[in-house]
């Protein structure tokens, strides 16, 4: 898919890439990516925190008295949910903003956040499943928490599918925004499922009954901030990719417009038309 896309992008506009080359001397050539100072800071912070978190989570902290080492999955499982929740929150916010003022920034942000959110929900389900086997004794149960989480995943996969539909841009963005708003209900259901229904899953990790010993809590805390930094890093990059795609689409559209106009003329070139106007002269 990537190859097909890039080949179609290659013929977008020779002039566009040529002008980019012309305007960017060798010094700027390095910057032709989605990186910036912001992403570098986020990326380095994320990697550093992740390194420390791995040291504490996998080495310095001890096993849990009953769960033994499987408790270490908590340090990535719960932070993954936090990132997913926040991403879906951004999707919700972006969708509201888009419907209010057709902001393409928020439209693209909502899309980017949904994709990152889906990735992290997959992580949540995988780590949860791997954690469930040694503790509960099963990889999967149709328990309220697990069922609602998989429904949430499906809903946001549906959102991403909707964003790929071959619809006019505005119609697609509008429908996606509606879905992005509605889907937040599912996130709330997931979060409160352990409270509202009887569940095999333990309650919220930051609940009243929660107790966690020192180094475990510290590892968990490190996991949360490391994942937040990495999530933000991914989100910025994903947004920029989406932004560039939308810009290139616009350029493509303008070119297609000019070409279509020219096709309709007797003369292939606009310049000729400017000089000789049949019927008028």
């Amino acid at each position: 898919m990537g190859r097909a896309q890039s080949s179609s992008e290659a013929d977008v506009s020779p002039s566009a890439s040529a002008s980019a080359d012309a305007a960017t001397p060798a010094s700027r050539a390095q910057r032709l990516s989605t990186s910036s100072r912001l992403t570098r800071v986020l990326g380095i912070a994320g990697l550093l925190l992740l390194g420390i978190m791995l040291a504490f989570g996998l080495w310095f902290s001890g096993p849990e008295i009953a769960m033994r080492d499987s408790v270490r999955l908590l340090y990535i499982h719960v932070p993954s949910v936090f990132v997913a929740y926040l991403c879906f929150g951004v999707t919700f916010l972006g969708s509201v903003q888009y419907l209010r003022n057709q902001s393409s920034f928020w439209d693209l942000m909502a899309h980017a956040a949904a994709e990152i959110g889906v990735l992290f929900v997959v992580f949540v389900l995988v780590t949860g499943s791997l954690w469930g086997k040694p503790t509960w004794g099963t990889y999967w149960q149709w328990d309220p928490r697990l069922t609602s989480t998989s429904m949430m995943l499906l809903m946001y996969v549906g959102y991403l599918a909707l964003r790929r539909l071959d619809l006019p841009g505005e119609v697609r963005s509008q429908r996606a925004a509606v879905l992005g708003i509605v889907s937040i209900l599912n996130v709330i259901v997931v979060h409160y499922s352990v409270k509202w229904w009887r569940s095999l899953h333990q309650s919220q990790t930051f609940g009243i009954d929660t107790q966690m010993d020192g180094l475990m809590l510290f590892s968990f805390f490190l996991g949360v901030i490391a994942f937040l930094a990495i999530g933000a890093w991914l989100l910025v990059h994903r947004f920029r990719v989406g932004w560039m795609e939308s810009q290139l689409d616009e350029i493509r559209l303008e070119h297609a417009l000019v070409e279509r106009r020219n096709e309709g003329r007797a003369y292939p070139r606009e310049d000729d038309l400017l000089q000789v106007r049949p019927g008028e002269s």
Binding site: A66, W136, T205, D209, M216
Partner: peptide
């Protein structure tokens, strides 16, 4: 036919120091 264990929200670290400090603790 199926027996699942429901873990609580209490995570207790298993470290050697606990042996002296916590009389209620039994190493698994």
């Amino acid at each position: 036919s199926q027996l699942l264990v429901k873990h609580s929200e209490q995570y207790v670290e298993d470290n050697p120091d606990r042996l002296e400090t916590d009389p209620g603790y039994e190493p698994s």
